[in-house]
């Protein structure tokens, strides 16, 4: 086989495999959005689901009657964005400390942080609620933000990335009289941008999709996040919401997160350029 045919073959395999994977990734989502445009009563089982006879927006209209979409959307956006910004800040600060400082107890503390990754906070949900109440955050969107402003897993991820930052840059900045926080802000953050961006996109989506905690802490529909409102459509006792409407709801939950992700992607792209420069 010549080099050229080998290249062509390689191209074929790579693209072919990825196309199959993409099909599997997209299919359930497409399936969901197709059904959300079908009339109630049209068959949605088996292959019928994919045949759409008379597309309708009625399911979405119904959804807007059922739940306060705009308020819920705003709540979701607020908790996801503020939650992500705060967690990025505190995690990267701590990650930087673990990666680039030598101080007594560093290793012990770091192992401790890793060990705490293993404790699911959900295990202590009941006492957690009591604490939340004490600090007056029940039924407040801040209850979803404050406890997770700094997470072990975020610290771990960012620390791993920051290990690769050359010490020399930091030392020279220190010699130039830059403050410690200034070094973090002007040197560490720009270099760590790709890691920060990928962590941000993951966090923002996880927060958007968060279900357990909002359900526990939030008490009325004007405070609910979109995820909670939509998830209540089918599970609630005595409900008979047709699937088309439920899937319209899930589509409405998923579309903003896709948009959010695409926005993050553009950041990430510029971040990668910056990351490549340092190499």
């Amino acid at each position: 086989m010549s080099y050229k045919t080998k290249e062509v073959l390689r191209k074929l395999v790579v693209h072919g495999l990825l196309c199959i994977i993409v099909a599997f990734c997209l299919f359930p989502v497409l399936w969901m959005s197709i059904i959300s445009f079908k009339e109630v009563g049209e068959s949605i089982t088996g292959f019928n689901a994919l045949r759409i006879q008379s597309p309708t927006l009625a399911n979405y209209k119904r959804l807007f009657e059922l739940i306060p979409i705009w308020t819920n959307l705003l709540n979701s956006a607020f908790t996801s964005i503020v939650g992500t910004v705060t967690t990025l800040f505190f995690c990267s600060l701590a990650g930087y400390a673990f990666a680039k400082f030598d101080f007594p107890g560093r290793n012990a503390l770091f192992y401790f942080v890793i060990a705490t990754m293993m404790i699911s906070p959900e295990v202590g949900a009941v006492p957690m609620f009591v604490i939340m109440r004490r600090v007056g955050l029940v039924n407040s969107l801040w209850s979803l933000i404050i406890p997770r402003m700094a997470t072990a897993i975020g610290i771990f991820y960012l620390r791993q990335y920051m290990l690769d930052i050359p010490d020399a840059i930091i030392d020279s900045a220190r010699i130039d009289g830059c403050s410690e926080f200034g070094i973090y802000r002007r040197i560490v953050v720009p270099i760590a941008k790709p890691a920060l961006a990928s962590w941000a996109s993951i966090t923002v989506i996880a927060r958007w999709n968060d279900y357990f905690w909002p359900l526990l802490y939030l008490r009325d529909s004007s405070k609910y996040t979109l995820m909670v409102s939509v998830s209540m459509l089918p599970v609630s006792d005595g409900l008979s919401t047709p699937w088309q409407v439920v899937l319209a709801g899930t589509t409405l939950v998923i579309v903003p997160s896709i948009i959010l992700y695409l926005v993050m992607q553009t950041y990430q792209k510029s971040g990668q350029v910056a990351g490549a420069v340092k190499g």
């Binding site: 009941v126 609620f129 009591v130 939340m132 109440r133 004490r134 029940v138 039924n139």
Partner: peptide
Amino acid sequence: AMDNLAGAYKD
């Protein structure tokens, strides 16, 4: 029950 536990009668 949770409100009761937390003494949050107002909630």
